[in-house]
């Protein structure tokens, strides 16, 4: 297998950046005062802004959601969403929303699937700012909504600085890798991990020397393709942990190129690709 990475720095968009910071700041203040006390009300507002008054059904038969009851490290909380649905071109999970009610910016990620690749599990790592409900909501191709939720005890993930070594983190920004088993069968589901080196700064960390919040700088979109065909696209936000990790599955029917395109909030874009040679059976 060969891997190729490219990186493209566009200019800093200071205004956009400042705007994000201010928006996030406001959200943070609102979060810490009014909403944090009333989980039900907070979810009601999130639900309305995402889905209007559409009905959301209980999703136990469609989705599974695995998360720790108490997070070891609020900045890195591993979560896994399981698809229990036999996905067919007629009925498949079109979008998957990951919501953390009491985080400053509650919608952690929205995954979009073209319905051509079946998958079993999807995992990522999130920051969790306060004791909260964590929700996975599937929007099916037929338009129906299904939800599962868990309660997670963790606090301080969004404002707690997660960068243990900022200099090292910036030096490696934009590095990407795919990890997968060395051997697999063509036509089988191939479990793959995508790792992106990015500080994913939330914009919520206050620097006492400069008296400014450290500007938000985070991954906004991740698109994975195989031979040019979309596997999934994710819109991501500040609740995703530093060095975003996404574990997903797809079925490579033939040899080809697995590719990822990443864009961040400062306008940088990164790509990485990997050749999957044909697998000799026997």
């Amino acid at each position: 297998m060969t891997a190729v990475s490219t990186m493209n720095h566009k200019g800093w968009r200071w205004n956009t950046c400042l705007e994000y910071t201010l928006t996030l700041l406001c959200l943070c203040l609102i979060a810490s005062t009014a909403w944090a006390k009333d989980d039900g009300n907070r979810w009601f507002q999130i639900k309305n802004s995402l889905f209007g008054d559409k009905y959301i059904q209980s999703g136990e038969e469609i989705l599974g959601l695995e998360s720790p009851t108490r997070a070891m490290d609020a900045a890195i909380v591993p979560i896994t969403i399981e698809s229990k649905l036999e996905q067919t071109p007629d009925r498949y999970i079109k979008s998957l929303y990951l919501v953390i009610d009491n985080n400053p910016s509650p919608v952690a990620a929205v995954f979009h699937f073209p319905g051509k690749h079946s998958w079993e599990t999807l995992s990522t790592r999130v920051r969790i700012n306060a004791y909260t409900d964590l929700r996975a909501i599937a929007e099916l191709s037929d338009g129906n909504l299904y939800m599962v939720n868990n309660y997670v005890k963790a606090s301080g993930g969004c404002s707690a600085p997660s960068l243990k070594d900022p200099a090292a983190a910036m030096a490696q920004l934009g590095k990407i890798k795919f990890r997968m088993p060395e051997e697999y069968n063509q036509g089988d589901l191939l479990p793959t991990q995508l790792l992106i080196k990015h500080p994913n700064n939330s914009g919520l960390q206050f620097d006492q020397i400069s008296r400014f919040y450290i500007p938000a700088d985070f991954v906004r979109t991740i698109q994975v393709t195989y031979n040019g065909e979309e596997v999934f696209t994710a819109d991501t936000d500040i609740s995703i942990s530093e060095d975003p990790s996404i574990r997903f599955g797809f079925v490579p029917q033939e040899s080809g190129v697995l590719e990822v395109h990443v864009k961040d909030s400062k306008g940088r874009s990164f790509t990485h690709s990997m050749d999957l040679p044909s697998q000799d059976k026997g």
Binding site: S159, P161, F206, Q208
Partner: peptide, 17 residues
């Protein structure tokens, strides 16, 4: 040398804790 920067970004969290 890196103490000032590390303290600067963590202090508000440390103090509130």
């Amino acid at each position: 040398k890196q103490l000032a920067g590390a303290l600067a970004v963590r202090q508000s969290v440390y103090l509130s804790r």
